[in-house]
Simulated scan of single mutants.
Amino acid sequence: MRYIRYASIAIFAIALITIGLANRGAVTLQLVPEELMGVAAVAPSVQLPLFVVIFFSILTGLLVGFVWEWFREHALRVEKRRKEQEVDTLRREVTKLKGESRKERDDVLALLEDAG
């Protein structure tokens, strides 16, 4: 199983390197479209290799997806936490009730019930 994981990582790394080498050309990223440059007081632009833009876009998409999913699952986490607290409360209550029932019965029988 470990070798399959290493092979997958190697294939993924080779694919990323190939994409990076194939897209080395510089592209200009502009914050404002050319038609609106006259209206905007500032029109920032930057020259980057295309593979940086591609990898940054993929990373940004992954981060947005993770954050979106984290917010979506918030209700599930709250429900899980509530149920865990309820289970803990019920366990304490059962332990307390078992302790009270032992007081009324013989100690030997109580020990046998706990073992079984």
Rank of each mutant, 00 (worst) to 15 (best):
E79Q: 15
E34G: 07
A110N: 11
L48A: 07
V94S: 09
G20P: 00
E113P: 02
A13C: 09
L76K: 06
W68G: 07
L62P: 01
K96E: 15
E86F: 00
R81G: 07
Q47S: 14
V46E: 09
E34V: 14
L50D: 02
Q30H: 10
R81W: 08
L90K: 05
L50F: 05
L63P: 01
D88A: 14
L112G: 04
S57G: 15
V27A: 08
V52Q: 13
M37G: 09
A40D: 06
I19T: 11
P49V: 01
G116R: 13
T89I: 03
F56H: 10
V46Y: 02
Y3W: 07
T60A: 14
L48T: 04
R91F: 02
W68N: 04
G25H: 14
R91W: 00
S101I: 11
P33V: 02
I58D: 01
T28S: 12
G25Q: 14
V52A: 10
F56Y: 09
A15H: 04
F51P: 00
V67I: 15
F12I: 11
I58A: 15
I4F: 06
T89P: 01
R2C: 05
L62W: 09
G38W: 02
N23V: 00
A7C: 08
I11L: 15
R24S: 03
H74A: 13
M37E: 13
G61S: 07
G25C: 02
G99I: 01
L90M: 11
E34D: 14
T18S: 15
F56I: 04
G99M: 06
F56P: 00
E113T: 04
M37R: 15
K96C: 07
Y3D: 13
F55Y: 13
R92G: 15
E93G: 02
V39N: 11
A7H: 08
S57D: 04
K96H: 12
R91L: 08
V108C: 00
L109V: 07
T28M: 09
D114S: 08
